[in-house]
């Protein structure tokens, strides 16, 4: 409905306009023909150099915009991959490759954006300030907009990565659940290789096995699954606790190692992203324009202030050229002088 509506509720009259133009061109051709090329030439010559610079800026902005678009497309692909929750068909490799690519692109975009900003400010320094007022605002807004978009993309990237970590943790849980059916005590030793787990070593000994009695029947998969999700953190500690029971299964171990590496990678990427984030955050000036309406009468206020200033200036003028005041002051002075002369001296 909305699509059809969108097509129907306005009318393109460009054709009609140009038909009129054509018919008029015939009638006033002699006058116009001599005029047109001249006018165009003049204006073109006048701002040729200017235009080059402008297009340089615009070109770069467009490039960055396009690149951001592409990156976010890749990102959505990545998100789709990361959402896959099956244990067996795990696209770790692809995800890692994509992550690296996106990461590189984001940092490249970051530097490009900084370049653009530098370019813009250098251009502004050259330009006459009052004449290019609108131009300056325009380019500033473009840069801000790009920054915001990059920021959003980065945020999205971070979210995807966080989701990925969560998913991986859940996978581990599930794996462990199934493998622990065979040998409950021999749960994954891979955790000890993880740097994060080592940090969290100060855990309590009393943490109960979350599913040891709760899901002993393991008839329904749903319950333990949920528990696993909620209790993903205790898992680490618990496995820490079980470290001493080193039952190494070599084949499983290599797999675990690769998984742990993947997790590690993801986490380090998040960390790096965090730094990019803070960098961007300082760059993006919070304009607070979220709720601004276009009719908030900034312009009027400005006009009023200017008006007030001109009024004050006029008043100053009138005061400074006020002869009457000068006369009055003069008379007062004379009077004082008289009084001084007659009564004091």
């Amino acid at each position: 409905m909305s699509v059809r509506h969108g097509q129907s509720s306005y009318r393109d009259r460009t054709g009609e306009f140009f038909k009129i133009v054509e018919s008029l061109r015939g009638s006033i051709a002699p006058a116009a023909n001599s005029n047109v090329p001249y006018g165009n030439n003049r204006s073109d010559g006048g701002r040729r150099e200017d235009l080059n610079k402008r297009s340089e800026f615009n070109r770069r902005a467009a490039q960055i915009g396009l690149a951001i678009n592409q990156t976010s497309q890749k990102l959505s692909k990545l998100a789709k991959l990361a959402k896959k929750t099956s244990v067996f068909d795990d696209p770790t490799r692809e995800i890692q490759e994509l992550t690296v690519v996106v990461k590189q692109e984001i940092s490249a975009l970051n530097t490009a954006l900084i370049d653009l900003q530098v370019f813009r400010s250098s251009q502004n320094d050259e330009g006459n300030n009052s004449r290019d007022r609108d131009k300056t605002t325009f380019s500033a807004t473009v840069v801000d907009d790009l920054k915001n978009r990059l920021m959003d993309t980065t945020k999205e990237f971070k979210d995807v990565l966080t989701m990925r970590t969560e998913n991986m943790k859940i996978h581990e849980n599930r794996r462990q659940l199934f493998s622990s059916n065979a040998s409950k005590e021999s749960t994954n030793p891979f955790v000890r290789q993880r740097p994060l787990a080592a940090k969290a070593a100060a855990a309590s000994e009393s943490a109960p096995l979350p599913w040891a009695n709760g899901a002993s029947s393991s008839s329904s998969q749903l319950v333990p699954w949920k528990q696993g999700e909620a209790e993903s953190s205790p898992l680490l500690q618990q496995s820490q606790q079980q470290q001493q029971q080193q039952q190494m299964v070599p084949l499983q171990d290599t797999y675990m190692q690769s998984r742990a590496e993947a997790l590690h990678n993801v986490e380090s990427t998040i960390h790096e992203l965090g730094s990019i984030f803070t960098q961007l955050a300082t760059m993006v000036s919070q304009q607070g324009e979220i709720a601004i309406r276009i009719d908030q009468n900034m312009e009027d206020t400005l006009a009023n202030v200017e008006g007030a200033q001109s009024q004050l200036a006029r008043y100053l003028n009138s005061i400074s050229s006020n002869r009457w005041l000068m006369m009055k002051i003069f008379f007062v002075l004379i009077a004082f002088l008289m009084i001084f002369l007659f009564f004091v001296a």
Partner: peptide, 29 residues
Amino acid sequence: SPLIHVKDLRKHGVTLYFLIDKDRRPVHD
């Protein structure tokens, strides 16, 4: 103004917005 905020304008690529009878400066290309 009741329908669309500056944020939305930006989202749709509008960088500057002016009243028509304001004194405007050229922004080429």
